[in-house]
């Protein structure tokens, strides 16, 4: 792997963390202001009584908003914009939802098993109208497990960059270039974990999250195509175009 000095790793962690905070969509201070308010029972019931396609559209819009912040984050990662456009797109198509799922733990209240959504904190029951309760449960379980790691913002930042720069994505044209970037990012991840005096298994724990993320993203794609088989017109005319570009 590339030999990288500690000073360079410090600098890499700092720039990635700065990019993360500039593009994180929700600053934790903002969330504190909402005083972690959860939806009232009446509000929960109104989500539950929405037609399935409307709730799907709402969630597709929210995911698409989050994706745009992840694209901005990627553009700020050292070396990403030097990759060929094909690979930039391959990495974003495969990795943006993974980063969103990781970022979700910043917006997650594990005491109440709820996530910041559409203005307040929502439990899994808010999403019942989607008709994919098992996937929603797995997403909440993942958020809970990420929260229990209590990652700091700079650890989340570097782990997000590490996920985006996955050299094992199919269709990459310059695999070696991506591999080099990912190796450097992994060194930065080890560096920030050591600097924050994390116990030895921390990096392995994070790496074990990768397979869970891959599975969640695959299930999202499968659930979307099952939905589209039933409502092709809704997806074609009412889903954000960027969402369809990424997951269509």
């Amino acid at each position: 792997s590339p030999s990288v000095s500690t000073a360079e790793l410090d600098h890499l962690v700092q720039t990635i963390s700065k990019s993360h905070l500039e593009t994180c969509q929700y600053l934790t201070e903002e969330l504190q202001q909402t005083s972690w308010q959860s939806f009232l029972q009446a509000e929960v019931e109104s989500y539950q009584s929405k037609p399935r396609e409307l709730m799907w559209q709402l969630c597709a819009v929210k995911i698409t908003e989050a994706v745009q912040y992840v694209v901005e984050f990627a553009k700020r990662i050292d070396g990403f914009m030097e990759l060929c456009q094909n690979d930039q797109i391959v990495l974003l198509k495969a990795g943006s939802l993974e980063v969103i799922l990781v970022r979700m733990c910043r917006l997650f209240d594990s005491q109440n098993n709820s996530v910041y959504f559409d203005g307040k904190f929502a439990g899994p029951d808010v999403f019942r109208a989607l008709g994919c309760d098992d996937l929603i449960t797995s997403v909440f379980d993942f958020a809970n497990s990420m929260c229990s790691l209590r990652l700091s913002e700079d650890e989340l930042a570097v782990f997000s960059a590490f996920l985006l720069l996955s050299a094992d994505r199919s269709w990459l044209q310059e695999k070696l270039k991506v591999e080099k970037l990912q190796q450097k990012t992994q060194l930065a991840l080890q560096h920030v974990l050591q600097k924050n005096r994390r116990e030895d298994g921390a990096l392995n724990k994070l790496r074990s999250k990768v397979s869970a993320l891959r599975s969640l993203c695959t299930r999202h794609t499968e659930t979307l195509s099952a939905f589209r088989a039933v409502h092709p017109d809704v997806v074609r005319t009412h889903f954000p175009p960027l969402y369809k570009e990424l997951f269509g």
Binding site: Q68, V71, E72, K75, R76, M81, Q85, Q88, I89, L92, K93, P241, L242, E245, L246
Partner: peptide, 14 residues
């Protein structure tokens, strides 16, 4: 293909 993603990548980092 990926018209919007291309566009977002071209825009100066907002």
């Amino acid at each position: 293909k990926h018209k919007i993603l291309h566009q977002l990548l071209q825009n100066s980092t907002s």
